[in-house]
Nucleic acid binder design. Structure first.
Lengths: 139, 139
DNA sequence: TATTGTTATACTCTATAACTATA
DNA sequence: TATAGTTATAGAGTATAACAATA
């Protein structure tokens, strides 16, 4: 049975592949008690150092109210801290702890593995092309 | 603020773009009382003519129990029928009605429009490349 | 015994509205 | 007035298990 690809094909293909990526990463992260969205929050906090929760939501395309509960989970697990912002007492800056950094090192490998599996049929060149095109989609 | 793209980058980009595509299509379909998953079921049923519900689920990557309620909705709206299978009395074949075909003609244009908007930044060549690469991702 | 469809259920994800404390 | 964070909530998506009818 061939795959059915409806018109509006690309949106469908993106959604299906994205869903698969998320499910696979969730499965890989299960032993850590984390899910893919925790990983993206942890990763962005580490790589962009000290984002506010609002910034995290913006950058990751996640609703602010969802960021709160994701950071709650990560804080409870000791992987991030909420620090106060020097200039604005409303704002809370999310900082990755040492434990968080260590967890991130491990889970990053898992995320790479999930990507590798998904992209198994593509050459290195094709992977770069795909990534470049995805980065240029309308945001 | 640049976009944060964690390692496991491609999976993240796919999920974000796919989510956007689904949300946009849901919004476009709202006047029809349909959502994107109804559209994919309707589209696959029309283009592959008379699939069983199990086949629909397989082809679209949707859980069988979800197919039931999607087909329920479409049947209630008069867009598909459940016919009996000639050789297997367990199986129910999903057939698009005339009304369904007409709705599909209209909604297909909406789906194309959503794709167009998402792909606005890419040339025709780049769009074809993207689609071709997406079709080759691990299923 | 295995499969198709179905129902029930639970959990995650997404989105919105309302509130507080600050700006 | 507006913004950052928070809480509560509801709807959609996803997944699993159990069951009836049929193979």
């Amino acid at each position: 049975m061939p795959h059915a690809v409806p018109s509006g094909r690309v949106g469908f293909l993106l959604a299906r592949a994205g869903g698969r990526a998320i499910r696979n990463l969730n499965r890989a992260l299960e032993p850590f008690g984390l899910r893919s969205r925790h990983y993206t929050v942890l990763s962005a906090s580490a790589e962009q150092g000290g984002l506010s929760q609002r910034e995290l939501g913006e950058v990751l395309g996640v609703d602010p109210s969802a960021v709160v509960s994701l950071v709650d989970d990560l804080e409870r697990a000791g992987l991030v801290r909420r620090d106060s912002h020097p200039d604005d007492r409303r704002t809370r800056v999310v900082v990755v702890t040492e434990a968080g950094r260590s967890t991130l090192d491990t889970t990053r490998e898992l995320a790479r593995g999930v990507d590798d599996e998904l992209l198994a049929g593509l050459s290195e060149d094709e992977r770069r092309t795909l990534e470049r095109l995805l980065l240029r989609l309308a945001s």
